[in-house]
Computed example of a mutant assay.
Amino acid sequence: MTIVRLGYVAMSMELTNASPSKTMTFAQFQKQEDREAAIRKLERIALENLENTFRLLKHNLFNDIHFYRFSSRLIPSATHDELAGWDYMKPLKGKLSELGNFIEEHQMRVDFHPDHFVVLNSPKKDVLINSVNNLKMHHLLLSGMKINPTHRCVLHVGGNYKDTAKSLERFVENWSEIPLPIQKMIMLENDDTSFTLEDTLYLCEKLEIPLVFDYHHHLAFHRNPNWENDWDRVVQTWKASSLPIKMHISSPKSEDKFRHHADTVDVDMFFTFLHEIKGSVPQIDCMIEAKQKDVALFTLVEQIKERKDVEMIDSSTFYLK
């Protein structure tokens, strides 16, 4: 049997006033007459985001949810060039330590999915530098929580720039400029417009990076529809990781908006995937990428409970028979 564990992304649709992504744009920052007061405001917003993250983790604990993706917008404008020298970690140390202790105590799996502007195969040096700086912030946050950063950040390959082969090779070239601690943090995901499962596997096998398989993305964009033929290769990219294999699950909003995420997950679509991989791994962690966030998870679990091919372990985890 395979253990399947469900998680969700960043926000709760059930908790009120619990956004972990409150912000102040740099344009708003510039309008403040007192720079130091403006920085203190940024720090207060970051602390509020971390406090709301703590509320979300407690919500997850109450609902037996062991897998959660942090918001990548916990610290507003943290890596902006004009704020270089701001030690944004200093006022957050106590709260980060508290979060880390809670996560360790309850054995939760947490990670990040940095924003789309983090592009490691960019031909522009400044974009690469800014991307690495953004990833360093993620590394600092994980380290501040005393969480091992290894395999905690999911990235897309990046831009296609109208030449897939050259864009893949540029990723390899740029990889040599990425600091080793950042390299170790990365997982790669196939996307729905530029890099197929096979493209992403090429990089993951060459550079020893775990591959996070996005089933919906594959259905939207592939050269070979039979992903099952490459599943063993996907599994092998995780052989050196201490974490269970991870995948993303979402459903199309509609036929004409196939790439857009629906509010919830189509349970039959999900189990089409699960029955193909059943028994190939002891455990798989499935990150739900649906508009209704935790409510999508709760809705999916209620549908799963009605099935005869599962045995529930708790409110977000089950055996696939």
Results as ranks from 00 to 15, higher is better:
Val267Lys: 05
Leu201Trp: 01
Gln236Tyr: 13
Gln183Asn: 11
Lys308Arg: 10
His59Pro: 07
Pro210Gln: 07
Phe62Glu: 15
Phe26Glu: 02
Ser97Trp: 07
Ala78Asp: 00
Phe62Thr: 14
Asp87Glu: 10
His216Ala: 04
Ser250His: 03
Leu61Glu: 06
Arg259Thr: 12
Pro225Trp: 12
Lys95Thr: 06
Phe271Glu: 01
Thr23Pro: 03
Arg109Pro: 00
Val281Cys: 06
Phe117Lys: 14
Leu203Gln: 02
Thr16Lys: 15
Asp230Gly: 02
Pro282Gly: 05
Lys41Ile: 03
Lys206Arg: 15
Ala18Glu: 02
Lys305Arg: 15
Phe213Cys: 09
His139Lys: 12
Gly159Met: 06
Glu105Ser: 10
Ser143Glu: 15
Lys146Ala: 14
His138Cys: 11
Pro20Ser: 03
Met1Arg: 13
Leu188Arg: 07
Asp191Gly: 13
Leu203Ser: 01
Tyr8Lys: 07
Ile186Cys: 01
Gln292Thr: 11
Asp266Arg: 09
Ser242Pro: 10
Ile3Lys: 09
Asp87Ile: 03
Tyr8Ile: 08
Thr2Met: 10
Phe298Ile: 11
Lys95His: 03
Ile288Gly: 00
His248Glu: 05
Asn63Asp: 09
Ile147Ser: 00
His275Tyr: 10
Arg223Leu: 12
Gln107Asn: 13
Ile103Asp: 06
Ile277Asp: 01
Trp175Asn: 08
Met13Lys: 14
Ser251His: 03
Thr53Tyr: 02
Glu173Ala: 13
Glu311Cys: 09
Leu201Lys: 02
Ile209Lys: 03
Pro244His: 08
Leu168Asp: 09
Thr25Ile: 04
Arg55Val: 00
Ile147Asn: 00
Lys58Met: 15
Leu6Asn: 04
Arg40Gly: 02
Asn174Ile: 13
Leu155Met: 09
Met1Gln: 12
Glu302Gly: 14
Gly279Ser: 03
Leu120His: 03
Met108Arg: 02
Asp214Pro: 03
Lys257Glu: 11
Trp86Lys: 01
Lys246Ala: 04
Ser315Ile: 07
Ala18Phe: 04
Glu33Thr: 11
His217Asn: 13
Arg109Val: 07
Met185Asp: 00
Arg233Phe: 02
Val265Phe: 05
Thr193Arg: 14
Lys257Ala: 08
Trp238Phe: 07
Leu211Glu: 04
Thr196Ser: 13
Asp268Ile: 08
Arg259Phe: 06
Asn134Glu: 15
Phe117Thr: 14
Ile249Phe: 08
Leu83Pro: 04
Pro20Trp: 00
Cys204Ser: 12
Val281Gln: 04
Lys22Gly: 10
Asn226Lys: 14
